[in-house]
Amino acid sequence: MTTNIMIVGVGGQGTLLASRILGNAVIGEGYDVKVSEVHGMSQRGGSVVTYVKFGEKVYSPIIGEGEADIVLAFELLEAYRALPYLKKGGRIIVNEQAIDPMPVITGAAAYPADIAKKLSEKANVTAIDALALAKEAGNSRAVNVVLIGLMAQNTQNPYERWIETLKATVPPKFLDVNLKAFDLGYNH
């Protein structure tokens, strides 16, 4: 059995760094780990999906429908889109930020209303205003680390392991902001 975490968001939100932090935090625990990243055109403001899987032995780096233990969503609509991937009894951790996709901006489609409420009717949901907490930590770009902090609560990994990983993964210039952002998420 593997633990499957799916990270979804909008290109530019920092999902890639989040998946790297997550991947490196779990190798220290002696697991086999696979992390699937996205590069290139899909990074330009489109839907972005990365996968982190760990366990005794991991084969496929991707997560299929009904297989994610945790969906870590950086944006409401992307959480909604990822719903079919959630395992029965799995948890969605969602940032309450809404970012309009281009079809909504051009008026070709409508942004669904009350997504957090609709999600909680179908799954276990933890919603958080990660943008506000990131700003509180000192940088609106630290949304990803706030969410990692919140997710860390839901894992067996010790707190110190996460802090070690942050120190090893994040550029030193941004370490203080990110440590603060992590704590705000972790203690939420």
């Binding site: 889109r81 991937y85 959630l86």
Partner: peptide, 20 residues
């Protein structure tokens, strides 16, 4: 056959890549 996944009850607008 895979189990039917949980679905949203409404269409979800696509999010294609855009210029930054």
């Amino acid at each position: 056959e895979p189990e039917a996944p949980v679905q949203a009850d409404e269409p979800i607008p696509v999010r294609p890549p855009v210029m930054c």
